[in-house]
């Protein structure tokens, strides 16, 4: 579904991602794990079209999408959910969700389906998104992305700002979604255990380079990963 070759991202004179290669097959869930500042966000932002200065090749389902702006990628079904969520705080939850499928006409059935996935949102429907709790905002952010029936969902640190219980709930929701919608997911995460539980495969990113790759089970058993990211010896 997604093929990334030789992706480089720089902020000013400082390069933070040095030639990243990555692949996500249709229906697969892939995790990009690494510590804070490893370049995960930069890489996802570049794939999502938010870093116009990046170089490298990106293809979505075989189609060359390198250099396309973010809104064009969203319309092609590559939907990015940033760690900051970027909701429209003064607009209602419903408006936020409906915007997820812009410029399409609001689809009632789809809206009902998304609200069904996150029942909490039903109660909050007409409330401004800015008044919601962190967990609820995360639901709106993911719900907004699902409105478009994405071909590929990019999730950046979905655990940000959430209590451990909520992190579990959010990842449980992702697991349900994978079954229900056959979603293709690329998730960047510092909370490695949760991400490895969800993912089929994972890449370990350190200092802007892939250091390690394998199936989620392989990496969970890898002593280096256990030491650095799972807090085990």
């Amino acid at each position: 579904m997604l093929t990334v070759e030789g992706l480089r991202v720089a902020y000013g004179d400082i390069e933070v991602v040095h030639g990243l290669d990555l692949e996500v097959a249709a229906g697969e869930a892939v995790a990009l794990i690494g510590s804070n500042g490893a370049g995960k966000t930069a890489a996802l932002r570049a794939v999502a079209g938010l870093e116009p200065g990046c170089s490298g090749r990106v293809r979505l389902a075989g189609e060359e999408i390198t250099g396309l702006p973010a809104h064009a990628l969203a319309r092609r079904g590559l939907v990015y959910v940033p760690a900051e969520r970027r909701l429209f705080g003064a607009m209602t939850v419903r408006e936020n969700l409906v915007l997820g499928a812009h410029p399409e006409r609001p689809d009632r059935d789809r809206l009902a389906r998304v609200v069904e996935l996150f029942p909490r949102l039903a109660e909050r429907r007409s409330q401004p998104a800015g008044t919601l709790s962190g967990g609820e905002q995360q639901m709106v952010a993911v719900g907004r992305a699902l409105m478009r029936r994405p071909r590929l969902l990019l999730l950046d640190e979905p655990s940000t700002g959430l209590a451990p219980v909520l992190v579990e709930q959010v990842y449980a929701a992702f697991a349900r979604l994978r079954e229900a919608e056959a979603l293709t997911v690329l998730v960047a995460e510092q909370q490695v255990p949760a991400a490895l539980q969800l993912a089929d495969r994972a890449y370990v990113l350190e200092d802007g380079r892939i250091q390690l790759t394998g199936t989620a089970d392989e990496l969970t058993d890898d002593p280096r990963v256990r030491r650095a990211y799972l807090g085990l010896t």
Partner: peptide
């Protein structure tokens, strides 16, 4: 829909782009 797009951009340019605006 256009109005909604305008308001979304006014609030958060990047967020709006991610929604396909």
């Amino acid at each position: 829909r256009v109005g909604r797009a305008i308001r979304s951009l006014t609030q958060d340019e990047e967020g709006a782009q991610l929604c396909g605006v």
